[in-house]
Structures are given as C-alpha cells and as structure tokens.
Design a protein around this nucleic acid. Sequence first.
DNA 1: GCGGATCAC
DNA 2: TATGGTGATCCGC
Length: 611
Amino acid sequence: MASPDGVADEKSAPAKGEEDFETLKYQLLGPSLLKAGQDAVDQQKVSEIIYNASKGSKFFDHEQERDRNLTVKIERILKEKARLEKLDLSHDLRRADEYLAELELSRDLSQYIVHVDCDAFFAAVEELDRPELKTVPMAVGGGVLSTCNYLARKFGVRSGMAGFVAKKLCPELVLLPQNYEKYTAKAKETRAIMAQYDPLFESASIDEAYLNITAFCAENQLDPEEAVQRMRAEILENTKVSVSAGIAANAKIAKIASNKNKPNGQFRVPNDRTAIMEFMRDLPVRKVNGVGRVFERELDSIGIKTCGDIYPQRALLARLFGEKAFQFLAQCYLGLGRTKIEPVENHERKSVSTETTFHEIGDKEELRKKLRWAAEELEQDLARTQFKGRTVCLKVKLHTFEVLTRQTAPPRAVSQAKDLYAFALPMLIKLEKEIPGMKLRLLGLRVSNLVSTKKVGVNFFGVAAPPKPTPVQPSDQSEALDVNTEHDIGAEEAFENAARQEVQDEMNDLEQLSQEAAGLSVTPAPGSTAADVTEHQPVQWECPICGRPQAPDDRAFNDHVDFCLSKQTIREVVQDSSQEMSAILPSRKRKTSAQQSHTDVDPRQKRLFFS
DNA sequence: GCGGATCAC
DNA sequence: TATGGTGATCCGC
C-alpha cells in the first residue's frame, strides 16, 4: 500500500505500513492458551508457526479484519474513558459501591460446590482402547481438534486448533477421528459415580459436572477435600479416566479451581471471604468463565488484568461495557457465583439447530441441496428433542468467513423438513439477491421460540400432567399456560386441575394446528397425536390467516390474529420469489389432491420429497 | 424482534 | 491441503 503523501508521511507515522501483528498473533493462538500443559511451551515460537501456517488464507484475512475492528473498538473505549474521567463520576462510584454492598449481603458461604473436569477426556478414552497412544503426541478431531493428550500439548497443540496447523507444530502428531458414542458411554460411567456424591449433580458438558456435596459431607462426616479425593479415586479406579476437581463456595470459583492442579489433581478455595478475595485479587480475568479473548483485550486496555484490578475501575465499567458486564465484573471481583446446582434436565431449551461446513459453493442448485439437507437434519433433531419452533433462522458463512443470519416467524410452529425449507429458502434467495455471486462455506438452520410436542400424559382422573419445561412466550399464549410453572398444592387442586386441562387443550390445539403450519402441510408428523386431540366446542371463529379456530374462552385469540397478520409478510416474501416457491408452497385455500393424499404416504417416503 | 458478536465446550 | 458444531446471551438498533 503506497503512502499518498510520500516521505514526510512515513516519518510522521512510522507505524504505518508495519502493522502491529502482536494482537493478531495472540488471537490466532486460539482460545485455550491458558489451559494446562502449556507451561513448558515456547509460545513465541508456536505463535510464529501458527502465524506462518495461516498467513495468506481467507481465514487469516478474516481474523485480521476482526482484529482491526477490535482495535478500533478499543480506541473508542479509551476515548470514552478519557471523556468520562473529566466528568464528575461520584454518582457512578456511589452506585457501584451500593451494588457491591448489595452483592456482599447475598454472599453464601454455606455450600461446598465441586467442579469436576475430565482430563483430556476424548484423548484419554482413546488411550484406554489403544494404550500405545499414551507415549505419542495424539489428538482427537478432524479439521479442528477437539482435544489432545498432554504429550501433544508440549508442542503447542491445543483444542480448537486446525488439524493442519497442529501437524505443522508437531509433524508426528497422531490424529484420531471422533467417536462420540464411545465418549458418551464413558461419561455415563463417571456420572454414575458422581451421582453417589450428589444425586442432583449438574452435567455442564460431556466431560464436566458441578456437584453440591454439602449434604454428602455432613452425612458422612467428611471434609470436602477428603470427599473429593475419594470421588476422584473412585472414578479413576472404576472408569480408568482421571479427573480434576475444584472445590469452593460457588460454581464460578470451583470451575477456576479445577484448572489449578490439572491433570489428576484438585484444589480448594476455602469458604472464607478473605481467602476468596485473595484468590480473586491476583486471578487473571481471562480465567473466569465468560471472559474470552475479546473481553480480555478490552479490559486490558483500561488496565484490568486481574479480578483485583476491577475495583479501582468500578465507577466506569457500567458506562464503558454496559450494565450486565458491570454486574458480572462486580461478582468476579467479590468472588461470587451461583450456589444452586441442578440437573440439566431442569434447564429449558431455547433453540435447536444444525449447521455444516463444506467446500465453497456458489451454485444455486447446490446451495438448495444443502438447505434441504439441513432441513432434514433439523427435522430429525426436532423429532428427537420433541419440539417445534415458531422462529426459523438461516445461518450462512460466506467464503470470506463472514457470518450472516436471517430469521423469520412462520404463522405456526414448524418442525417438518419441508416447512423448514419452505421458510428458509426465501431468506436464502434474498441473500443471493443482496450478495451477487454469493459463495458459502457453511449453511445452517435453527429454530427457536420452541413449543414442546411432548405427549401430555393423562392420569387416573383424566387430568393432564403438563410436560416438564414450558417453553412458551407469555406474550402470545393464553395466561393459562403459566400454571405450568406452579406446583401442586392441595387446597387449590381443583382450580389447578381445571387450569391444567386448559393447558392440555392448548397443547393439543397447537399440536393439531401446527400440522398445517403456514398452510404448507397437511401431513401429520409420524406418531402424531392428531388422532387423540381433545374434542373442542363448536368452532365460532377462525384466524383469517392460518385458520386457527377460536377455542372456548380463548382470551388469546385476538392477540393471535394480530400476531398472524403481522407475520403475513413472510407470504409476501415467498410470493416474491414465486417461481421457485410455487412448487412447494401452494395456497392453503386450495389444497391440491396431491397434498391430501400425502396424508396417507408412509412417513419414511417423506424423504423422497427432496430427492 | 432482528442481526451481529462473543463465549463455552 | 486449506480453520467445527451446538447452544446461550448480550448489545445496538
């Protein structure tokens, strides 16, 4: 890039033309720089190798772009900081101190929380099957490594790293494909043991879990450290995989602590305020769950490297990073975290998605094939998880690695591949129009605003028991659905039973109506409950858009019609690209005989729809 | 509510 | 030869 102003410019701005690659190199090092097993590694050298392996690729260009954007963002932050510091911040300071005081009051030191983390889990499981792998650097994963053993880490190899980069760092690296079933089976073994220490333990991922061992320690007259020693020994004995653990008063610190003595070790931060504050004071913010590479750099720019550094900056944080970030950092400074550990089944799922990366594709027909495939994948995932979604989101990654998403809200919850496809295709077409010559390397589909399709169980009295999670938006649902979150209390039983019946009616209603989502489909899903839908009162009104009948005492009906009307736009988009869409999106009012007969088609043949 | 961005694993 | 997939959350608009 030539300097337009010649020599003078170069003198006054020596940094020009010689970009600072330090931050970029750091970014390229990847997210797991702080993981265990890296101590003896020459990071400088590793950084060079990664940099050179990546240079010139589209991936590299994209990372460089992101790095530049972040640098600009940080400049803005610094400018804003300088501006704020000229103002009177006593109000912000007082507000921050009030919040810290409030948090302090909520501090709970009564629980013993444990974070258990399997050491190099996938690699460890593979080594069980093939012990000879223990003596060689080895990693699991394809294009990107899932994990690697500690021998590989000595070379600077890390999880999340591209396979070919890892090979540059360590040419003798043994690369194994993932075998997820195998790891799941092994994880099940470890969980069986953890359940003895806390039956309500929380699986954080396939190889991580949180436990509350307060009760176990009390019942067995055991010190938390002894209890965890025992559990780890038991896990190693029975499953032959080693785990590390952190013990603390809350999940946040336990998680950090579990990394302290990895592998095959444990670390405890006592349930003592002073000990906790000291532990946090010198702790790099990056070690806290939730602080990634970007936030780390932003915080570093204003002089925050450790959690102790947060306090002096407390008056500025909300203004610079937002209220949530301030609250998060305040909790980091104080060493506070959640003490509630609960089974993951209690957590309400918010989305179901699928995506795949492939070689660059620009051909429209090929892209549609990919979209069909994604739709079929998602249909299966939705069937497995028993959900439909009221929002469909298309995700694409351009050949430049830029990611775009577009979402739309069908008038009905959808789950079938052809519906997902029908609503996603217009978005894809729109993108193709916006980006001439669009080439993709990834395509994905997600549904959110989920509606459960779990069968509603009916008990002896003919009263429905609602399905566990109730992922519905109160905004466009009848209020009756709210009772799902309440508990069974004797005195109000009759009322609640009636309310539950309403819930079931609504659920079945949704179930039935979503069969004809957007008027696209009249095919009941395999195993549909359409046949056992509760009988309704005679229908008086129908939604003009989707035909949803007004249920008795349906207070949400008007809202629903508004909702449906507002989503009418999707049809306009669809009709906009009518040529392609007409084949798959006939008007609901004119159901073709082909569609009706579709009802009788073997569900397995449904796949033929796309092939 | 939408789209981009960040984060964890 | 050529940098992942799934799910969640937050922010700015």
